[in-house]
């Protein structure tokens, strides 16, 4: 959640890089107003962040939680992680999953957003309410439902695939194990995560579309532009800031997917770990907590996300300057 701050904060940058406005002297009023919020955020978020940074260079277990001083271990936590094959495998899974899931989420979300814009008032409200249910479903519930759907005992998906003609999908689906290999597990995970996250994109895109001046699209239609062309030439450029924010948010969300994967495959399927599960298994899973190690992984994950965010903030600022 914290990581979204730069992305959101960047939006005004874009606007301010437009025509120069006369500079005013800073007034204390606004700062006083946000001070309480800042204080809360600093205590509850920045301070733990600092602690995590400190702990990533220490050996911290249950004894240290109870008050014993922690031992400084230098960069040992980091070198252990970086020399672990499982870390690199988990990183690969995390990145690949994010690429696929984010693309699908944005694609599906945009399409549904456009659909909602086209639909009549009642139908639009009905469909919007329908997709919002998916968004409102808690991740644990969604994960359990998808685990059942794709289960090998009484799973609806296997039953349905088995009913389809073998020419289309092949036979022997009834005992298909959807969680036997990483590729299969991530297929289910992608479906589950995309299903849950596209409504947010759809509704945000819809909000953007509603704010567009109708004349532009009308003019394009009069000039005989196809729907495809008017989307890419008019709608997309105008909504670019929204798409960028959605992109960064989706990357951040999909990078740290934990709950769904934990429920669907869990600790017994190390070959399907992503970074969050790897961190959990290294740091928290048992009675011998290794919080220093967990902090080190968290730091790596945070740095990765900050890097992603930084790249996009940069692109956004650049685009603001050129447009």
């Amino acid at each position: 959640m914290l990581d979204t701050a730069p992305a959101v904060g960047a939006a005004p940058d874009r606007r301010s890089s437009g025509p120069a406005r006369p500079r005013r002297r800073p007034r204390p009023g606004p700062y006083l107003l946000i001070a309480p919020t800042l204080l809360v955020i600093a205590t509850l978020m920045f301070w733990p962040m600092v602690q995590i940074a400190i702990m990533s260079f220490q050996k911290v277990g249950n004894r240290q939680l109870a008050g014993e001083p922690a031992e400084q271990v230098g960069t040992e936590n980091f070198s252990t992680i970086l020399s672990d094959d499982l870390f690199w495998q988990s990183l690969r899974h995390t990145v690949l999953f994010a690429v696929v899931a984010v693309s699908l989420t944005l694609l599906l979300g945009t399409l549904v957003g456009l659909l909602l814009h086209r639909l009549g008032r009642r139908m639009s409200a009905f469909v919007a309410a329908g997709v919002m249910v998916a968004w409102a479903t808690p991740p644990i519930t969604a994960a359990i439902i998808f685990y059942w759907l794709f289960g090998s005992t009484g799973g609806v998906v296997n039953w349905f695939l088995d009913l389809l003609p073998d020419v289309l999908v092949g036979g022997d689906w009834i005992d298909h194990n959807w969680f036997a290999t990483p590729l299969r597990t991530y297929t289910v995970l992608t479906v589950c995560v995309v299903w849950q996250s596209f409504p947010f994109v759809a509704v945000s895109v819809l909000a953007g579309l509603k704010s567009l001046p109708g004349e532009l699209l009308e003019a394009a239609r009069v000039d005989g532009a196809s729907a495809w062309r008017s989307f890419w030439q008019i709608t997309f450029p105008l909504l670019r800031p929204i798409f960028l924010v959605l992109l960064v948010l989706s990357i951040i969300w999909d990078f740290k997917v934990f709950t769904q994967l934990f429920i669907m495959s869990g600790m017994a399927n190390r070959d399907a770990f992503n970074l969050s599960l790897y961190a959990y298994s290294e740091a928290f899973g048992g009675m011998n907590a290794k919080l220093g190690m967990g902090s080190a992984i968290a730091t790596v994950l945070t740095l990765l996300l900050l890097a992603v965010t930084a790249v996009y903030v940069r692109i956004m600022v650049r685009q603001g300057e050129t447009s």
Binding site: F258, A279, A298
Partner: peptide, 12 residues
């Protein structure tokens, strides 16, 4: 993030 939450809980 999960770790922050745990740390925050522990701190609280």
């Amino acid at each position: 993030m999960r770790f922050i939450k745990i740390a925050a809980t522990a701190a609280a």
